[in-house]
Amino acid sequence: EVTIKANLIFANGSTQTAEFKGTFEKATSEAYAYADTSKKDNGEYTVDVADKGYTLNIKFAG
Rank of each mutant, 00 (worst) to 15 (best):
E1L: 14
V2Y: 06
V2L: 06
V2H: 07
V2N: 03
I4H: 01
I4Q: 01
I4G: 00
I4E: 01
K5T: 15
K5R: 14
A6S: 04
A6F: 03
A6N: 00
A6L: 15
N7G: 01
L8A: 02
L8R: 01
L8V: 06
I9M: 11
I9Y: 14
I9R: 07
I9N: 06
I9W: 11
F10W: 08
F10L: 07
A11P: 13
A11M: 09
A11W: 10
N12Q: 05
G13D: 04
G13Y: 05
S14Y: 13
S14V: 13
T15P: 05
T15C: 13
Q16H: 13
Q16Y: 14
Q16C: 14
T17N: 07
T17R: 09
T17H: 12
A18I: 15
A18C: 15
E19R: 08
E19A: 09
F20W: 05
F20V: 01
K21A: 07
K21G: 05
G22Y: 02
G22Q: 02
T23W: 06
T23S: 11
T23Q: 07
F24H: 06
F24A: 05
F24S: 03
E25Q: 11
E25G: 08
K26E: 13
K26Y: 11
K26L: 10
A27Y: 01
A27C: 06
A27N: 01
A27H: 00
T28R: 09
T28S: 08
T28C: 11
S29P: 02
S29L: 14
S29A: 15
S29Y: 12
S29K: 14
S29C: 14
E30N: 10
E30G: 05
E30I: 06
A31S: 03
A31I: 06
A31E: 01
Y32C: 06
Y32W: 07
Y32K: 05
Y32V: 06
Y32D: 01
A33P: 00
A33H: 10
A33F: 08
Y34P: 00
Y34F: 14
Y34G: 01
A35T: 02
A35C: 09
A35S: 04
A35G: 03
D36I: 06
D36P: 01
T37Q: 15
T37L: 15
T37I: 15
S38I: 15
K39D: 03
K39Q: 08
K39W: 06
K39N: 06
K40W: 11
K40N: 10
K40S: 10
K40Q: 12
D41F: 13
D41W: 14
D41A: 13
D41M: 13
N42K: 09
N42T: 05
N42L: 08
G43R: 03
G43F: 04
E44A: 11
E44M: 10
E44G: 08
E44W: 10
Y45C: 03
T46W: 10
T46G: 04
V47H: 02
V47S: 04
V47Y: 04
V47A: 05
D48C: 14
D48A: 11
V49K: 08
V49E: 07
V49A: 07
V49Q: 06
V49N: 04
V49F: 10
A50I: 12
A50C: 13
D51H: 05
D51M: 04
K52N: 15
K52E: 15
K52H: 14
K52M: 14
K52C: 15
G53T: 02
Y54M: 11
Y54N: 05
T55A: 04
T55C: 06
T55Y: 04
N57R: 05
N57A: 04
N57I: 14
N57K: 05
I58V: 06
I58M: 10
I58N: 00
F60K: 00
F60N: 00
F60A: 00
F60E: 01
A61L: 14
G62C: 10
G62W: 08
